[in-house]
């Protein structure tokens, strides 16, 4: 893995560190910038805002939003809220896992897809629902799912 460019991280830390209790906001902005929380940057945060590294990692590992590894190009969030659950969310997840040959939390070898099982996306009346990057797909059927995944795969391959 190539070393992350530290410049943007330093700018984020400097601009946020003026407010008290800014650790989580800093972590969120770092993750938006890098897609995950690189270890090296967690160490820098610890030094710059004067909080022990253990506490920084403690906070980061507490919240499900934070990732410590790079995700795939397309992050598929499969909703497991109550409405989705009783409308077949496990089938959706099962199909994706079979189809992409990865399990929840993993990334495909071609770095195109990561599957994440999430608690609730709040679109319950369209259950079952998933979100790919920022787009929500509702009223899913296995047929629709297959089409959507193929679309992203084609897009990924043509951009590769």
């Amino acid at each position: 893995m190539s070393k992350p460019d530290l410049e943007p991280a330093l700018t984020i830390i400097e601009s946020e560190n003026v407010k008290p209790g800014s650790l989580i906001t800093i972590l969120q902005k770092i993750q938006t910038q890098y897609g995950y929380l690189p270890k090296k940057i967690l160490e820098i945060i610890s030094r710059r805002i004067d909080i022990p590294a253990a506490k920084v990692l403690g906070a980061a590992s507490f919240y499900s939003q934070f990732k410590f590894e790079e995700s795939g190009k397309n992050v598929i969030k499969v909703c497991h809220g109550t409405a989705c659950h009783i409308s077949g969310a496990s089938k959706i997840l099962g199909f994706l896992e079979d189809h992409l040959k990865i399990t929840d939390g993993e990334t495909t070898d071609d770095k195109l897809f990561t599957i994440e099982r999430v608690a609730c996306l709040g679109c319950c009346s369209l259950a079952p629902v998933m979100m790919i990057n920022d787009t929500t797909y509702g009223r899913l059927t296995l047929d629709k799912l297959r089409k959507v995944i193929n679309h992203y795969r084609k897009e990924g391959q043509s951009n590769a």
Partner: peptide
């Protein structure tokens, strides 16, 4: 922080 799965009123 509407965390209940199955709820979207606050959103």
């Amino acid at each position: 922080d509407e965390g209940d799965p199955g709820a979207f009123m606050d959103r």
